[in-house]
């Protein structure tokens, strides 16, 4: 475990906590895309099936349980909690997210490191995670008033991906045979999707103005 990965995991954890804080404490999910949250729930459910087959560390298992639990509870909150559900921007959150799932599954069947059930699902989760933020970015662009928590949530998620890239560079130079092209390329694509958001986020921060994405 290097400092970049730990920082990346902690940033990821912080993003989930920010979102849970908003939903649980303020009872609002305004500006949060349910489509993205559903995709993340699928991502974690398919990636962390190896909880049952491989053990790496207590840390690893605990974090997997946290990400599984939080992603499913966020989806349930948004769908079934009366007050939270009322604040959901249903009319704006119209991205056809199921159309992302099938191409990712096909790509995972075609391009993978090993053709086993768990490995193909793991690869599918990498491809799906790379594009899962798209509905959220589209929703942000449509939302007139992006509140601070939603902006911070997306910023932390993007930060987590950026830190993971530093982690891969570090591991490549310090660990022999650490080469994972599929993970790297999907991670890079995922991080690039945030580039635009990061630009406007830093602008709003610098000018001390409310975050607003151009339509």
């Amino acid at each position: 475990m290097n400092i970049f990965r730990l920082a990346g995991d902690m940033t990821h954890l912080a993003s989930v906590l920010v979102l849970l804080l908003k939903i649980h404490t303020i009872k609002s999910c305004a500006g949060v895309s349910l489509k993205t949250q559903e995709l993340y729930a699928i991502v974690f459910a398919t990636r962390y099936l190896d909880i049952f087959t491989s053990f790496y560390s207590i840390y690893n298992t605990l974090m997997k349980l946290v990400f599984l639990g939080s992603s499913f509870s966020i989806v349930l909150y948004m769908k079934y909690h009366k007050t939270v559900h009322r604040s959901y921007d249903r009319e704006q959150d119209t991205f056809r997210h199921w159309f992302l799932v099938l191409p990712c599954l096909l790509l995972a069947l075609l391009i993978h490191e090993k053709f086993t059930f768990l490995e193909v699902l793991w690869t599918f989760s990498l491809y799906l995670e790379a594009v899962a933020i798209l509905p959220q970015l589209v929703l942000l662009q449509r939302t007139r008033n992006i509140d601070n928590l939603t902006g911070q949530y997306v910023f932390l998620l993007g930060g987590y991906r950026g830190l993971y890239i530093l982690n891969w560079i570090y591991r490549y130079f310090t660990e022999p045979h650490f080469v994972h092209w599929i993970t790297w390329i999907s991670g890079l694509v995922q991080t690039l999707l945030y580039a635009d958001f990061f630009f406007y986020y830093s602008q709003s921060w610098k000018n001390n103005k409310k975050l607003q994405l151009p339509a």
């Binding site: 087959t53 491989s54 790496y56 090993k114 982690n167 993970t183």
Partner: peptide, 10 residues
Amino acid sequence: QDKPQNHDEL
């Protein structure tokens, strides 16, 4: 051959 891939990252 049947050993699972090492996925130690999250």
